[in-house]
Design a protein around this nucleic acid. Structure first.
Length: 466
RNA sequence: GGCCCCUUCAUCUAGCGGUCCAGGAUGCAAGGUUUUCAUCCUUGUCACAGGGGUUCGAGUCCCCUAGGGGUCACCA
């Protein structure tokens, strides 16, 4: 049985580094038919917020990573932690420390002045005397005085941390609330974790947590410390690198499977494979294959993956996804052709929405450069003749109808395709570039085509007059 | 600063002592397809951080240097 977890602290939104560790935990649990749990680390009442918790849960829902059971809130478990703290106190494995915050700060300063590593000096470790008055004590756990704390990391290998690096750290604050390293160890053990996959910024918490495991007689899980995701230039990932908030990717028009595929390939690979369906990730993922080195965020590759997944999505799904971007196609009679065209050309849903809107709406203005390039020479007359041709044509429904209409038109006038193509393009969508003209005309229909052509002709005449 | 981790193309990576004059992907460049743009296809571009060892043989093992990162709270 494999049990894993993702344990965010609700101090902000879920960022992509967090999503990646969550994904790794999720994959490893699901691959082994085990359990994946969610735990909200909200022991610091002053810093966490309900909105942050909501945002994290929302992100999980968006990427469709399901967790087992209800999320566990550490704030609901203070009684439990207190009972273990009492137990350690009774067993002499933890003790009250009466040093005030100010004294502690002073000690730290002195140590730094002597170029020593700041460290609690253990002055109350074996204290039997009369406690000083007026000080609410903290509880500290007894860490080993000498030797090393050794553990096996599934990514970094054997880690041996000198006991000197681990002091008697605080497990309960003076107000009685438990601290992070204590509750994490207690919860991981009690929730039955077999594998803990987390960011390597937690590497130095591991020996501390091992002290707790051992004091309480809990069985150690396997640890995997995954390197962080760096921003462009190898610096720390920040908002400057685009979206850090997972939900920003949704808003920017990314598909969740593209984001997940992108993240799974950051620090992990399976031969030369780039595209992974959820099933394939589940089939191949193993945390011991995660690279030991940090990787850099690469937005171009994400974009590429996103366009791949858009191309391979059904029109029905795209249509419903596009509603978030203000484009309603579910009941549109030209839905299929519209989506077939644009899913090939767009990298994000947002871009798709913009381009579809551009075709569906009569142009409000014309691109200056396009006008200059397209409307020279006989362009206006050609456009007018084309309008007559469209008006008098018999069958005009499918793109092929419009296409043969254009073919016979250039044939009759003995002109190149560009002579009508460019002005027509400007008339229809207001600029050069864009999808096939026959497709556009078929989508908007004969009447709208004529309307747009006439609008441009009118616009040009007015412009000439002034 | 102490301790720890990391180092293959611009980027993500393959490589687990010989099959590597280092492979794939993204990006970029060129060409083809296209009435345009995009897609797509083809080709090209680009790397073992540096220096010592070990070995018949090193991208792969060891050491040193440099660079990057993490961590040193009554935060999580």
């Amino acid at each position: 049985m494999v049990v894993t977890r993702f344990a965010p602290s609700p101090t902000g939104f879920l960022h992509i580094g967090g999503l990646r560790t969550a994904l790794f935990n999720y994959l490893w649990a699901r691959r082994n038919g085990g359990e994946f749990k969610l735990r909200i680390e909200d022991t610091d009442m002053s810093r966490n917020s309900a909105e942050a918790t909501k945002a994290i849960l929302e992100a999980f829902e968006w990427v469709r990573m399901d967790y087992d059971g209800e999320p566990v809130y550490q704030s609901d478990r203070f009684d439990l932690y207190r009972s273990y703290i009492t137990q350690l106190l009774d067993e002499g494995k933890a003790y009250y420390c009466y040093m005030s915050k100010e004294e502690l700060d002073r000690l730290r300063e002195e140590q730094m002045a002597r170029k020593e590593r700041p460290r609690y000096d253990g002055r109350y470790r074996d204290f039997n005397g009369e406690p000083p008055k007026g000080v609410e004590p903290v509880v500290r756990i007894k860490a080993p005085l000498e030797g090393e704390i050794v553990f096996e990391d599934g990514i970094k290998g054997t880690m041996a941390i000198s006991a000197e690096e681990v002091d008697d750290f605080i497990i309960a604050r003076s107000d009685g609330t438990p601290t992070y390293n204590f509750v994490v160890a207690v919860d991981d053990a009690l929730m039955g974790m077999t594998d803990v996959i987390r960011g390597d910024d937690h590497l130095y918490n591991t020996p501390k947590q091992i002290v707790v495991y051992e004091a309480l007689g809990f069985k150690l899980p396997r640890f995997y410390h995954v390197p962080m995701i760096l921003g462009e230039g190898g610096r720390k990932l920040s908002k400057r690198d685009g979206a850090a908030d997972v939900m920003d990717y949704k808003r920017a028009g990314y598909l969740p499977e593209a984001l997940l595929n992108f993240l799974v390939r950051l620090g992990w690979s399976h031969g030369d494979q780039e595209i992974f369906t959820m099933e394939e990730m589940l089939e191949h993922f193993d945390p011991s294959d995660i690279n030991a080195s940090a990787s850099q965020y690469n937005p171009d590759k994400l974009l590429w993956l996103n366009s791949h997944y858009i191309k391979n999505s059904s029109n029905e799904r795209l249509a419903s996804l596009l509603e978030d971007f203000g484009v309603y196609l579910l009941a549109h009679d030209k839905r299929e052709i519209l989506l077939d065209i644009f899913k090939e050309r767009c990298k994000t849903l947002k871009e798709m929405a913009e381009q579809i809107t551009e075709v569906l709406q009569t142009p409000k203005e014309y691109d200056e450069k396009a006008l200059k390039k397209a409307m020279k020479g006989e362009a206006l007359q050609i456009l007018a003749k084309f309008a007559e041709k469209v008006e008098s044509a018999e069958e005009l429904h499918l793109p092929t109808d419009y296409h043969s209409l254009m073919e016979s038109f250039v044939e009759e006038l003995q002109i190149g395709f560009g002579k009508i193509g460019m002005p027509l393009r400007v008339a229809l969508i207001g600029r050069l570039g864009g999808p096939d003209l026959s497709d556009v005309m078929s989508i908007i229909g004969r009447e709208e085509t004529l309307k747009r052509v006439e609008k441009l002709i009118g616009y040009m005449k007015e412009k000439d007059a002034s």
